[in-house]
Write a protein that binds this DNA or RNA. Structure first.
Lengths: 136, 136
DNA sequence: CTCTGTGCAAAACTTTTGCATAGCC
DNA sequence: GGCTATGCAAAAGTTTTGCACAGAG
């Protein structure tokens, strides 16, 4: 695998991002520094970086896939109101892969846990709306 | 919500299927009984049935979404060799939503756990291949 | 009769791919 | 120089949507 400027910038963009960007988000960000980069290159590199485990793909129901750093393992919660993705390092003993492996008898290579939640901000807004609703 | 023959057949097809079908799978199956049904109708109804909780959408990395019955809760494992989806009712105490809720302090509405595994059949085939490989 | 759902087709969106060229080692 | 990666553009795959008509209540 050759080392290219494009690949490096794409990796850094994902690792430094805190928004769990989609491929297109990454393309837009990288394009600021590197206007001639193509979306195809972004997809090719994201796919490659996933395969070698440098980044992770997060699957979100009904949306484009998102990407995330892979240096520390964590799970994800997505707010159903605003779509924000929140990282959580779920403590569970035995761990989820261990449980899966024990209970299925199969070799577990990876897993993805995405929960739907209501984030703090939206939770606050909902309460507000409810109160306002009562005033009608 | 009106009751239509299309909606009923689509729901039954998902509930009775054991292959965790994609929207297009469902379209192909339903078309046998109902040749004039359109793919748009299938998508519209699947989406609607998901929203009212009658069925569930399973998100698979890099593939079309799949659908599943929702009457009994279970998690999913997908074989990375053959793509087969295996149901598993993961036993975990406290439950995963409880853990998530405790550890995040947020309200958890739903969650999706998809593990990547190697199924029994593929596990057997790999061993075979490895043995054959040694003979070269 | 009214409102919702359907069929059809076009479009939108996401991702992959073929090909000639550029860049890395 | 040889092999890999890129840019561009076209295509493939999945899902959504507008519209006129059909069907449900």
């Amino acid at each position: 695998m050759n080392r290219t400027r494009q690949r490096e910038v794409i990796l850094q963009t994902v690792v430094n991002s805190r928004i769990h960007p989609t491929a297109d988000d990454i393309y837009q960000i990288v394009r600021i520094k590197m206007p001639n980069i193509s979306l195809g290159t972004v997809y090719r590199n994201l796919s490659l970086l996933c395969n070698i485990g440098k980044i992770r793909k997060i699957n979100v129901v009904g949306q484009a896939d998102r990407f995330d750093r892979a240096n520390d393992w964590h799970d994800h919660m997505i707010c159903i109101k605003c779509g924000k993705i929140i990282d959580i390092t779920l403590e569970c003993s035995p761990s989820i892969p261990e449980l899966l492996s024990e209970q299925s008898g199969l070799e577990i290579l990876d897993y993805s846990l995405v929960a739907q939640c209501i984030c703090q901000d939206c939770s606050a807004n909902i309460s507000e709306t409810e109160i306002l609703g009562e005033l009608d």
